[in-house]
Computed example of a mutant assay.
Amino acid sequence: MLRDLEAVRPRPDHPQRTLRQDAVRGIELYRANMRPRLRHPRERSTQVPVQLITLRRDHYVSPFLSEGLERWVPRLTRRELNATHWSALLEQGPAVAAMVREFTARTDSALQTGSELPGGEGPLVVITGAGSGIGRATALAFAEQRATVVVCDLDLAAAERTAELVTLLGGSGHAHRVDVSDGAGMDAFAQQVAATHGVPDVLVNNAGVGHSGTFLQTTEKEWQRILDVNLWGVIHGCRAFGSMMAERGQGGHIVNLASAAAYLPSKLLAAYATSKAAVLMLSDCLRAELAPTGVGVSAICPGIVNTNITRTTTFSGLTGDEQAARQTKVSKLYARRGFPPEKVAAEIVRAVRTRQAVVPVTVEAKAARLLGRLSPGLLRLAARFDLG
Rank of each mutant, 00 (worst) to 15 (best):
K343F: 03
V126S: 03
V209S: 06
G296N: 12
T54H: 06
G372N: 07
D155S: 14
V24I: 14
V359F: 04
F385N: 00
N205C: 09
Q217K: 11
W72K: 04
L65W: 01
L290E: 14
P302E: 04
R42Q: 11
V234I: 10
A383Q: 02
G251S: 00
T328R: 15
G171L: 03
K276V: 03
H59R: 15
L216R: 10
A262L: 07
G249Y: 06
L378I: 11
A262R: 03
P265C: 02
T319A: 12
A139F: 02
V349A: 11
Q92C: 03
V150N: 04
R20M: 09
G242E: 08
A7N: 11
S132M: 01
T138Q: 03
T18C: 09
L280M: 13
R136K: 10
V229Q: 04
T214H: 02
S266W: 10
A105R: 13
T128F: 10
D4W: 12
L379Y: 08
E80M: 00
L52R: 09
V8K: 10
K267V: 13
V352P: 02
S115F: 00
L90D: 03
G208A: 15
D153N: 07
V344H: 07
V150R: 02
V166Y: 00
A139Y: 03
G173K: 06
V204D: 07
A324Q: 14
W86L: 15
L371W: 15
G388R: 06
A98F: 01
A195W: 03
M99R: 09
Q323P: 11
L286E: 09
R35W: 13
V297I: 14
A147Q: 07
H85L: 05
S266Q: 10
T107Y: 08
N206C: 12
S181R: 14
R42V: 02
Q191H: 11
V61P: 00
H59L: 15
G294A: 09
F142W: 08
L156G: 07
V149Y: 08
V279Q: 14
E164Y: 00
L117V: 05
V180A: 05
R146M: 04
P10L: 05
L379V: 05
A98H: 10
G129Q: 09
V361C: 01
E164K: 08
P123W: 04
A258H: 10
A291W: 11
G93K: 06
L203H: 03
R42A: 14
V199N: 07
V100M: 14
G185I: 12
L379R: 05
R42T: 08
V96N: 04
S375E: 08
K267A: 12
A262W: 07
M281L: 07
N308L: 13
A382Q: 14
R336Q: 13
R75H: 10
L264Y: 03
A130T: 00
A158G: 02
S375A: 14
R239N: 12
F142Y: 13
G171S: 08
T214D: 06
D58M: 12
V202K: 08
L124E: 04
T310A: 15
S266E: 06
A271E: 07
A97Y: 11
D179E: 14
G185W: 12
W223Y: 06
A143Q: 05
T319V: 05
P49R: 04
A110R: 08
A139M: 06
L381G: 01
E116H: 09
R11K: 09
E322M: 10
E28R: 13
